[in-house]
Every structure is written in structure tokens, then in C-alpha cells.
Design a protein around this nucleic acid. Structure first.
Lengths: 209, 209
DNA sequence: TCACTTTCTGACTGATCGGTACAAAACTGA
DNA sequence: TCAGTTTTGTACCGATCAGTCAGAAAGTGA
């Protein structure tokens, strides 16, 4: 079948789209980020994206599908500091980059405050349950990534033999999620940074056992 | 005016209410706690409370008014451990009771997991904004209570002169709010307890500077 | 029994929810 | 110019939202 060739031809067929997909998705992301999945209505979305409803559905599918696309973009864009932290040579630098990166990411000027994984749907009605679970799963994946880095550190002797990577990862995750609640409540960058520094200081007490 | 006397008379006039106010309010609280303010519909409420709509409105006012009444009850009932913690003689016991009390309260069998102040409305649509702010304000009041206890400890010499009650209170609050996110995501009592113990351990590192 | 008061029940309101049908518009290749 | 294809804007869909009306029901005192 010559589907591939045909696709290239048909790609330019028909009335051209009058808006930019990336721009529109960015705008949708910002609304979901600020208001949460259920707090955002389709009217909110079309207004922010500057497109009308049928265009939204044709380009992104239904509301949940659009949210997941926005979520993917959020993960790619807003969690780069995670990889930088994980790539750090020492566990001390890892934790520092992680906590301080979170403080920055959750208080970026021009972006909604807080973390989409937390404020997207901590609770919801029955209809949005699948979205809630998706966010919960992604939070757990983040914790697993931290745990993996700590396990590596332990193997390398960068963490004492008595340290439990699972417990420590859970603790770090909890602090970061708490920072997300703080940010959602209005905490600014200075305040978040102070929390991060306090947690970092506490870290040294934890691993010196 | 003889209003007082009259009220006693009229209190027994008319058709008697066929449901118990406290029971109904408890049921409403549980729904709000589990689904959040906006995730809960009036149909959810009337079903759970086993009353119909006009009875709900007559007894509790509109949805927001009912939520605030449920919130008041939640605060009275679910944060008793706060006062016990604050009343503890030493700052060490205060922090221990606070963190462990939170772990217990957020994982009580037969109650929704997590904290209503966090999952009630971290984000919302424009209509629920006043509820979101109310919850944010109550979280901040909790932080202020912790700060007050730490200030007292500092004055008593139970905290070192270099310790900053504001920063420490913010840190403790953040950890507890993170625990609420963990609980909302399904963390059980054992896991929450482990987080609390880890934070408690970290505490000693923080105040020994 | 009967006026009076309050609650209960069920049906209803206008507004908004997420989602879609339809036809005009804007492009392509022929 | 004209068929074919895709997007556009408008107007609409049934369902559900929070909230209310009106009348029957259930109690009171006289």
C-alpha cells in the first residue's frame, strides 16, 4: 500500500488550520494547571486557546484527551530539572538540584504556581477518576525515579549502608508535594526556596545515621 | 421582647424533622472529604445524607454554606491532635505528636484518606474561589499555630537561639501537607507513619545547629 | 375538629456541562 | 472552473448543574 506517499499528499489537502497546534496546547495547559481538570470547562479552554469547540475536538479529541496531551507537554517541559538532578555526580547535589529545582519550577513568573500533578485532580467526581489515577501514577513514577537514584548512590557508597532509599525517596517526594500545596496556596519563590533549603539541611541529618 | 420564650414555644411547632442534623452533616462531610468541594454534586450530597434537596437547603443553606458547616465540624473533630501536640511540654514531643497525629488522622479506617483542607479545593473554577481561599486561610492558620508553639519553645530555651520558628513552622507544615497528598494518592497508615518518623528524625538535624 | 406552622416530596427552573451536526469557507489537484 | 478534502463558525444536543416552587403530610395548641 502506498499510504505513506498518500499521507504526504493529503497532508496539504483541504482548508488549512488557522491556528498553531503548539500554541493552542500551551494555552490549554496553562488553564488546566491553574484551575485543575474538573475546574476547567470547555468554554474556559476555547476562550484561552482562541479556537472554537469543533476545532478543539478535531485537533485534540475530547477534554480528557486534551488534558493528557497537555500533561505530556507539562512533563517534558517542567520537569527537566529532574533529569539534571538525577545526572548530578553526588547524591548531595542530586537532592539539592531536585529541591531547588522544584522551588523554581513551582514559582516561575508567567506560569501558574504549583505542580499540575498535584493540583490537577487530587480529588474529583466519579467521571474524572481516570485522570486522578493517571496523576497519582505519575507522582509515583517520580518517586520511583528518586528511589532509583538513591539506590545507585547507595551502591556507589555515596549513601551509608544503613540508609533506606525507599524511605528517603518517599520523604523527599512528600516534601516536594508539600511545596506544591504551599505554592498553590500562594507561597512565592523566596518562601519555597526557604522550604527547599530547610529540607536540604534536614537531609544531612537523615543520612548521617 | 419575649422572643426567647417564643422561640422555645415555636421550637416544637410544625412537622417534626425526620432526620438527624448531626448525622446528615457527618455524611455530607465524608462526601466533601472524599470528592472535594467541586467534585461533589448536590445529588451526591442528598444521596449520602438520605434527605432530599429542599430539606438540605432548609437545614443547611446552599452548597457552600453546607460545606463550611462540614468544614467546621471537620476542624473540631479531626484536629484534636493539634491541641494535644501544642500542649505537650517539650518541643520534641510537640513535633512528634503533630507528625504522628497527622499520619493517623489522614489514614483513619472508615474515614476518607487525606486532609480536607488540602483536597477540598486546591484548584477550582471561578465560582468556588471563595471556598479555595477559605481552605488556604485555614492551612495558614494551622501554620501560625505551629509557629506560635515554636516561638514559645524558643523563649523557654527549648529551641536553640539560632532557630527560626517561622522557617521551621513552614517546613513542618509543608511536610504535613505533603503527607496529605500522599494519603490522597493511596498511602496507607504504615507508609504515612514512616514519613512522619523520617521527618521527625530530620527535625533533630534541623534544630541542632 | 380545625387553624397554624414546619417539613417533606416530586416536579420544575434557567444555566451550564461536555460534545456534535451542518453547512459555508478555504485550500488542493485536475 | 470544479470536484474533493479539511477546517471553520454557528447553532444545537441531551444530561447535569445548583437551586426553588407548590402542595401534601405531620406535627402543635385551642
Amino acid at each position: 500500500m502506498s499510504n505513506v506517499v498518500k499521507k504526504h499528499k493529503t497532508a496539504e489537502l483541504g482548508r488549512p488550520r488557522s491556528f498553531d497546534l503548539d500554541t493552542a496546547l500551551d494555552r490549554a495547559l496553562r488553564v488546566f494547571w491553574r484551575k485543575g481538570y474538573e475546574g476547567t470547562s470547555l468554554s474556559d479552554l476555547t476562550r484561552a486557546m482562541r479556537i472554537n469547540r469543533p476545532s478543539l475536538y478535531a485537533a485534540f479529541g475530547d477534554k480528557e484527551s486534551l488534558f493528557r496531551k497537555a500533561l505530556d507537554r507539562y512533563m517534558v517541559r517542567e520537569t527537566r530539572y529532574w533529569q539534571k538532578a538525577i545526572d548530578a555526580p553526588t547524591v548531595r547535589e542530586f537532592v539539592e538540584k531536585l529541591l531547588r529545582g522544584a522551588a523554581e519550577a513551582m514559582s516561575r513568573a508567567g506560569s501558574p504556581r504549583g505542580c499540575l500533578l498535584v493540583q490537577g485532580a487530587l480529588t474529583c467526581s466519579a467521571e474524572a477518576e481516570s485522570v486522578r489515577r493517571e496523576l497519582s501514577a505519575r507522582r509515583q513514577a517520580g518517586e520511583a525515579a528518586i528511589r532509583g537514584r538513591l539506590k545507585l548512590a547507595k551502591k556507589e557508597g555515596d549513601l551509608p549502608a544503613g540508609a533506606d532509599p525507599g524511605t528517603l525517596a518517599r520523604y523527599l517526594t512528600t516534601v516536594m508535594q508539600g511545596m506544591a500545596v504551599q505554592a498553590a496556596g500562594g507561597a512565592n519563590r523566596t518562601e519555597l526556596r526557604r522550604v527547599a533549603d530547610t529540607a536540604l539541611k534536614s537531609w544531612f541529618g537523615l543520612i548521617s545515621s
